[in-house]
Simulated scan of single mutants.
Amino acid sequence: MGTDEQRRFALVAGEASGDLLAGLLLDGLQARWPSLQTVGIGGPRMLAHGLQSWWPQEKLAVRGYIEVLRHYAEIAGIRRQLKARLLREWPELFIGVDAPDFNLDLEAGLRSRGMKTVHFVCPSIWAWRADRIEKIRAAADHVLCIFPFEPALLAGHGVQGSYVGHPLANVIPMAPDRGAARAALGLAPDAQVVALLPGSRRSEVRYLAARFFAAAAQMLKVRPALRFVAPILPGLRVEVEALLQASGAAGRVMLLDGQSHAALAACDVTLIASGTATLEAALFKRPMVIAYNMNALSWRLMQRKQLQPWVGLPNILSREFVVPELLQEAATPQALATATLAWLDAPEKTRALQQKFSELHVQLQRDTPTLCADAIQKVLEG
């Protein structure tokens, strides 16, 4: 085992949400091992922690069966080269951050050669693709779990895991300051604000942004004073601007470079793509309409492996439809507009939802960086 000065970990996070999780994880690791060196693949938050990224994170940010197939050769080539380099340079530990389709196979290959591996977070085997548990067992020495029921589920299949809380629960304040967020974005304190979050992947933006902007145009017909903000990754701005221009809402939607948390803090309601962002919206205590649309064949394949009636994390964690989900053919601009406006006319329902989200926030709050470091130290010592 290396000394603290010599410790070198490899991490791979495949998209913006994984970069956020990995950045918080690195807070704990670098507090435990101040001289830690990190290599792998990551985004801006990981780079800010000193990660040496061997490929751009955007190369891995692809979702959906058909979309992955289109990029399979390139992604498989990156994984093959990455594995070879890791085996040559042999970091003390490999941590796969989310991106299970990429990371679990990589982890299994490294672990079979004797490298210690950790996976953060537990793949959603409780929601869909239960068959993935066998792959997790082969891939990970330990799984860092962000939901409290996951370690027992893993243990039942012979996989070690630790509940570390959800990192976002400590980043997002229990009582977000809407006024400060609006001031920072130049929005009036008394405006009605809708946040549009069509996703962080190019494939998501391609399928959802036009629908979201068309829904905004529909809402403006009913409420011309509405204000819209849309956080967009800078690399997708040109594509998004073109979609906005064609939507009928051009000039009425403020495009933000990132700043999704500011948008969620400032808004009254959000129209949002299914994914980690829906949990962020819940932690900001914001009512939402969850939407998703993807390649039709990818959708049919996913439906076959879905184990629960919900796809949005707030609904999965609540075990009921506390917010509406409009998926695939149901995600029409008119339906999205109607469901979003309904929240603005239901203050009592909104207050009840905010109370439920506050209780969820408390359940997910833990000292995540320290608990992650504790679990990883045990793996290194084991």
Results as ranks from 00 to 15, higher is better:
101 D>V: 06
188 A>F: 01
347 P>M: 07
41 I>W: 03
14 G>V: 01
255 L>W: 12
140 A>C: 09
310 W>S: 05
342 A>V: 05
24 L>W: 13
352 A>C: 12
25 L>D: 11
321 F>T: 14
143 V>F: 10
73 A>W: 07
204 E>C: 01
193 V>F: 14
205 V>I: 15
216 A>L: 06
167 P>N: 12
315 N>V: 00
329 E>N: 03
202 R>D: 05
285 K>V: 12
95 I>Q: 04
164 V>W: 05
288 M>V: 07
187 L>E: 06
14 G>M: 02
283 L>S: 06
170 N>D: 14
280 E>L: 07
25 L>E: 10
314 P>T: 04
115 M>V: 13
24 L>C: 09
316 I>C: 02
93 L>T: 12
22 A>R: 08
215 A>G: 02
41 I>H: 03
341 L>P: 01
175 A>T: 15
86 L>W: 01
264 L>S: 09
139 A>P: 01
221 K>G: 12
128 W>Y: 13
6 Q>P: 13
35 S>T: 09
173 P>C: 09
305 K>C: 14
268 D>F: 13
273 A>E: 10
68 V>Y: 07
208 L>T: 00
62 V>E: 10
115 M>C: 13
255 L>Y: 10
223 R>T: 11
75 I>W: 00
361 H>W: 09
102 F>Y: 10
75 I>S: 00
34 P>R: 08
136 I>A: 09
95 I>F: 04
158 G>R: 09
143 V>R: 10
41 I>N: 01
109 G>C: 06
42 G>D: 03
283 L>E: 07
